[in-house]
Design a protein around this nucleic acid. Structure first.
Lengths: 263, 263
DNA sequence: CGTCACTTTGAGACGAGTCAATGACCGTGG
DNA sequence: CCACGGTCATTGACTCGTCTCAAAGTGACG
């Protein structure tokens, strides 16, 4: 499946097509993003892309595989606060707050593209639509976080797992990597435990539970959702918070039309 | 305690002084923010400032009291994903993603200042330092959310409560409303339950537990932390994620110095 | 063919939820 | 001035979801 070579411009194009889904960009802006200097970087699973506490100087775009943001407790327990799939600009917030307060770690084999903050700042200053797009991306990220938090606080293990599977399926399909009810999910049950606030043991039992009720087939890092509506009902899944529809774009267009005069 | 009248310019000044703590602004930019049109709004506890699903057209600044962001489940259970204290620009993200995915509700009696998005966009387009400041504020918000999520996933009720008290104390002191170990915390135990992912009953028992071990005195919506280091140790509290120090500002200054040329 | 990482299973303990009732406080109206 | 209703805090007994500790099973890879 994985190609041996991916050019930086191919990778940047994937990034741009993702951005444009939420924030309309003109030709100039697209060109500016395409001409960003960037370097491809490969990694195995479970290695730090960004170490906790590090002063980050490059943002990071996921080209292939999955990444996770980890918060670590003093006793070693850890929590995944975000998962990033292909196309996600997972480190954009570091442009304005460069001190990382958690680790960014690969969950599977990954290919990432790294772009220096300096260059992102440069295009951001020239093109207001680009800052706005970056800012919007960070806000959507926070929106996803809110839903994760609500799920952790108010849903049991079964519903939380169902919700995560629905979300990842939806995001992967949108990224053009599989169907929402049939996709590769390259993480371990320990990763799922860290993301859901459970223990690996209980994740295992929860998956068996969902399997036994005929909702999913999972194994070999692949997920099949047999009955999407049923799983979505268990999860209470409503994809609005992912802001993948045209609603956000419509609002973004209003932005562009606001005249740049003042006083 | 509460004054009967607060002018909009007084309120805006409070907002600016808060922004400047994280993002340096020049005189022009400060003046532009001060001249923003804004209206004062008062409300009792437990009323929606922003309804879920609403298309927001004004951002909202907390002048007095506390607000919470709520995510509601289908069965009525709800989760508070953020708490906002005086000075917080709690709705800034709505400038780029105007569709609210949760409710914004008063927790106590509140005074808020509302500023139309249109005008915020206007100043944001003229002054790059202002967009950047807004963006940064949203990112710091997300940083706080990450920590809440990690706490919900990996800490027990006692530690979660201790952490929330440390955080709110720190934020209130920074906002100039009380000392971090002695402050008014105008929320009910049900609010605490919604914020911590617990039931009101268990919040009550947890507070008694912290009281009985001599860590806090709480009652009448007031908190006293008898032994800060002890409570911080229970919580594993490290205020770095609040980005109240000079670190963030230093990084922000680098931004300003990046030349606005390209190609 | 052995090692290593990951998954699966079992039994028992414990933290937090549920349900239900009582108590304290406060503003309001008779 | 006191009875009333409402909201919030507190308590007890019991249930249940999830954790813990431990061991065994599976599969990939060198």
């Amino acid at each position: 499946m994985q190609r041996l070579t991916i050019s930086t411009s191919e990778a940047l194009e994937r990034f741009i097509s993702r951005i444009v889904q939420r924030s309309p960009l003109g030709d100039d802006e697209t060109a500016a993003l395409l001409s960003l200097p960037a370097t491809i970087q490969r990694g195995r699973a479970n290695v730090d892309i960004v170490a906790p506490g590090e002063l980050v100087e490059q943002a990071c775009l996921v080209v292939e595989g999955m990444l996770g943001r980890f918060v670590q407790m003093l006793d070693g327990r850890r929590q995944i606060t975000a998962m990033y799939v292909a196309g996600d600009m997972c480190d954009l917030h570091s442009v304005v707050v460069p001190r990382a307060d958690g680790a960014l770690q690969s969950l599977s084999n990954v290919v990432v593209l790294r772009v220096p903050h300096e260059d992102l700042r440069r295009v951001a200053r020239i093109y207001p639509a680009i800052v706005e797009a970056f800012w919007r991306d960070c806000v959507v990220d926070a929106s996803i976080q809110s839903v994760w938090m609500a799920n952790m606080g108010r849903l049991d293990a079964r519903a939380r797992m169902a919700h995560l599977l629905c979300e990842i399926g939806t995001r992967l399909e949108h990224a053009g990597v599989g169907k929402r009810d049939r996709f590769a999910f390259e993480v371990t049950q320990s990763h799922l435990a860290d993301a859901l606030g459970l223990t690996p043991v209980h994740v295992n039992r929860t998956l068996q539970d969902l399997r036994s009720t005929g909702n999913i087939a999972i194994g070999n890092r692949r997920v099949e959702i047999s009955d999407w509506p049923a799983l979505a009902a268990i999860a209470g899944f409503d994809p609005a918070y992912l802001h993948l529809d045209q609603d956000t774009v419509t609002a973004a267009k209003a932005w562009r039309q606001t005249p740049a005069t003042f006083g």
